[in-house]
Design a binder for these strands. Sequence first.
DNA 1: GCCGTTTTCGGCCCGACTGTTTTCAGTCG
Length: 575
Amino acid sequence: MPVHNSDIAKILRKMADLLEIEGANEFRVRSYRQAASSVENITENIAEKVRDGDDLTRISDVGDSIAGKIEEIVKTGSLQQLEEIKERVPEELSKLLNLEGIGPERAKELNQKLNIETLEDLEEAVKNKEVRDLEGFGKKVEDKIKKELKRESDQESRTLLARAVEYAEPLLDYLNTCDAAEKIELAGSYRRRKETVGDLDILIAGSDVDSIMDHFTKFEDVEDVIKRGESRTSVRLKSGIRVDAGVITGKSYGAALLYFTGSKEHGIHLRERALDMDLKLNEYGVFPEGEDKPVASETEQDMYEALNLKWIPPEMREDRGEIEASEKDNLPDLLTLDDLRGDIHMHTTHTDGDSSIEEMAEAAKEYGHDYIAITDHSKRVSVAGGLNADELVDELDEIEKADKKIDGIKILKGAEVDILKDGSLDLPDDVLDKLDICICSVHYYTDLPEDQQTERILKAMDNPNIDILGHPSGRLLQEREPMNLDMEKIIDKAAEKDIILEINANPHRLDLDDRHCKLAKKRGVKMSISTDAHSIGELHNLKYGVNQARRGWLEAGDVINTMGVDELLDYLGSD
DNA sequence: GCCGTTTTCGGCCCGACTGTTTTCAGTCG
């Protein structure tokens, strides 16, 4: 059973949770958390490093002790020390930490005094009104736990970015009707354009804090005010999404924006850097040691500059090397939506799309594209009414006709060909030869063992007709995990064979993900960003793919549909 | 448990808010 980096991170994080409940040294606990996050953030396969005898302490926040534990996890699939802690601390207790208002101390108290081990135990205790009598709890805490338990049971904790946008925009419109608010901006993971967001963070500049907060809490979608303080207020919307608002009164807008945008890891790294420079960094500015007048606070640029750094785009603020790159003035010139000139993956009524070839072309032209590729499904994808060889040839004729008929946009001939279970392709080579663009993707048998799944895709990549590997990991956010796959091998194969990896811009996919984008770029692999649209409205999803690409540090030169159509065809034809 | 262009020991990011307290611990982002 192959051990993934995420498996290792999970075990390290569990160690941290249980150690914390047990009352271990807080810095020791933090070490496990930091190591878990480093392990998750690197793209190299750690199990492979162990096999090759690489020095694991070269991973940041991994020292001799944790390196040994990682080795044990890779070799045995588990960690003896964790098993021992589980004897003393019930494993399920760590789930209590997910409830707002319960941290390690309270979890411990609940366990020791009421013998609570699971969420169900807690629910029972709340029902019997036993929790309120514990030291440091009280009725209000009990009520809050009750609410949290209900929320935990009937809701996803994170929200798809595209869905969050639907809640955020009306809220922004509403806040803009507040006279006292001078400037309003969304920060947090929303501003970093992460594929899912935990909550919405809103920053409001203005001097009349009370009327701004009053206005905010009176928004019609607000169901509950969670807390209201001097400068910060949190509410929960009827949709279940939580919104934190901060009001900035003085000249510290940049400092606050930096702080509220995060990520937490990025912020911590910056504050450590400040300390090294004998400065203090907080959400009000950058301060020389012992002084209360900041040397920077008004803009983010000022803040970074005070730390001898270039401004870092929000999408990169994950502490994955961006601070080091900024220090060396070596930040990438990130791709923008305007750089894209075409969309080369979409479906029509020939298979499971809602619109005809001509409708898609007209809509894409309206959107501003120079070209599109029509890429309908092959026959194996029967639920979508996939095309057999003859039907595809007929569609190609129709594409040619539409291309002649419609001026101002080039329509390329393509297909999304299913990769069969054995790695062969679902259409014969002589038909694939006729295509301008051949995307190959997996749609079935997504749960094969890693070795078999990887081999299957590598075999498909040996077919000289494949141009692009579509939605490479197969993940569906919050619905389906990525396939068991050695993505590093896929990326290396793509580099060897000049195969393009797709960044599927469907907000449910966003596949490749940001980390693998970064790795692919490092290995010299080109990528494409396409919507996989099944209707004209979905052509507008392209921006979500661009988000992911920017989070993966990609520049225009890394993405093939920034090319003009002639250059693109030349590029595709040359391999 | 990790880490070091002042360190191999002694530090480890910072402040807001809440509830339960009589000055603060716990939790959160």
